[in-house]
Write a protein that binds this DNA or RNA. Sequence first.
DNA 1: AACGCCCGCTAAACTGATTTAGCAGAGCAT
DNA 2: ATGCTCTGCTAAATCAGTTTAGCGGGCGTT
Lengths: 341, 341
Amino acid sequence: MGRDRATLADVARRAGLSKTAASMVLNGREGTRLSAEAHQRVFAAAEELGYRPNVAARSLRTRKTATIAFVSDIVATTRFAGGLIRGALDAARERDHVLLITETQGDPTFERYAIEAMLDRQVDGVVYAAMATRRLTVPPAILNGPVVLLNATSAENLPCVLPDDERAGRTVATALLQRGHRDRVALIGRNRLKERDSEVSLAAQARLRGIRETLSDAGTTLLAETFCGDWLPEHGYAAMRRLLNRPDRPTAVICMNDRLAFGAYQALGEAGLAVPTDISVVSFDDDPIAAWLRPGLSTAALPHEQMGRHAVEILLDGRSSGPSLVPMTLRRRRSIAAPAS
Amino acid sequence: MGRDRATLADVARRAGLSKTAASMVLNGREGTRLSAEAHQRVFAAAEELGYRPNVAARSLRTRKTATIAFVSDIVATTRFAGGLIRGALDAARERDHVLLITETQGDPTFERYAIEAMLDRQVDGVVYAAMATRRLTVPPAILNGPVVLLNATSAENLPCVLPDDERAGRTVATALLQRGHRDRVALIGRNRLKERDSEVSLAAQARLRGIRETLSDAGTTLLAETFCGDWLPEHGYAAMRRLLNRPDRPTAVICMNDRLAFGAYQALGEAGLAVPTDISVVSFDDDPIAAWLRPGLSTAALPHEQMGRHAVEILLDGRSSGPSLVPMTLRRRRSIAAPAS
DNA sequence: AACGCCCGCTAAACTGATTTAGCAGAGCAT
DNA sequence: ATGCTCTGCTAAATCAGTTTAGCGGGCGTT
């Protein structure tokens, strides 16, 4: 790989100048007194030889590698990881940087190993990402360099990028209120663990808060709140069945994520009820499945690409410390209608 | 990032030896005549200082970076990318390597840029991945170093890793035959473009071939083959509706992927038909949705993790050239039953 | 006593860049 | 003629490792 590449010395020789001169010209150094003609010759030589600097050699001297570490807990299991990574990749490319990606799989040994591997390669900074929005403890090894947390917070008040789940809660509830749902809105997906343990989830609490505040501002409350062991389709299915067994059937349900909503759709289908004419459904995430459902599911989209992009921007362009919230916009499809009245 | 790291010179000084000695000891060089005591002192010094070699400095001399490039066309849009990446990541870690990941987004400019960025960083090899199994043309820049194609082939007869779609076709058809479906098996998802243009897909052709051969070996053929503009749920839905309008309703359908199958499920649900009692369904991919459907969808799983792992193994352990096929195993769930008869 | 050999180790070159310090020559004033 | 400044450029150090070539001393042999 990369044998026979022209070196700076080759360029200098061909231009009839010193390495110093070549280096300065190619780096566009100000204040050097090299002649216009020298500039020309260097550029021409570099062009002709197809010269590309050796990043390893350069970074040895400058301690900059134009490489950033993207360390996450789990990439494979969630299809959201792709969005985070793509956003980060885009922002990195725009800044001529490149991403070294690792996964810790939640294993402290792997984590230590991964981080050392990154530091050995002199990365310029670390994006430390979690696949579920949550609080986490940052390994001390990365604290003496630039770090941005992605989809996570920590005790250290580091810069971090989070989705604005609370506002999403308000958005979702508002969408229902506007269509005329007030007193018969049910919730699917309460979960003590996710709500209490911020190391598990920050989304559950925030979404719930947003929903409740909005309804309370409108002078009402949730008709029912079902608990779910996890946020998977089967739990949404079971929850919806329970809801349908109640005497006061809701006119709308808010699901804490799209997978729950999918389960809810399944239960409704089996019960012979139609979305949205019998029951409206709204949700969170904008999982690809939301678009595949019939009718399409209206849902507050997790802005993964923007988040990934934002994290790299903060890391490289050096913005704020503290959290920066990325808005979740409501993807409007056909799952909300006015209540049957 | 990585200031104040101890260098080899520090270790040598502390051990009271030369850099040469320290280097040789730490690299476990054979044939050096350094005393056991010298070894001890070096190890102790390295330990005490928390010494870690600077990869950039090392690779400047050795031209090995223990870093491999993972270049793919599109990572974000498909949830399969995660599996490929995770497998590659695992195999790389086991070999003390690290992954530099880029995405070309199918754009030749981005691609050139990405590849140059990788080569500038002296990667030891390239995994060139496609997110849909297909034939592609490899950019010449990466041809003078080790390359493995992942989920793709090319004209150059490079080593590549592919899912064994043809055998999967046989597996799927066999599963149906074994349950007693013979003459009323329909197919959802014929697609001229995918079948003809190997730069679009290799899977379509291979799966179809496997299915046909198996049925033909059993002395029968497909009852019907529906064409779909793409392999998305809406197309599966429409195809299933067309199928249900026929006088000779199939007892089983094979869908070319799980998203089509999802659409088929939707159409069956609306028609009041039950899987698998009225119609059995089998499919390919093992998309997460396959497990979420009710009943769970039996499907030949794309072994993404193994494929990613395998690609890195071939790259680093240097195996065969030419294609290596990874088997797709049938994930058995509840979507197949004996025909109602 | 002279020679060669092996042992245990080191000096210095080398990788490919950046950066500091400074040199030679021209032009100008005194 | 001398001193000064400015211009245009370069030698050499530096980054942190690996690798080559070889040095000094002890030992055995003849």
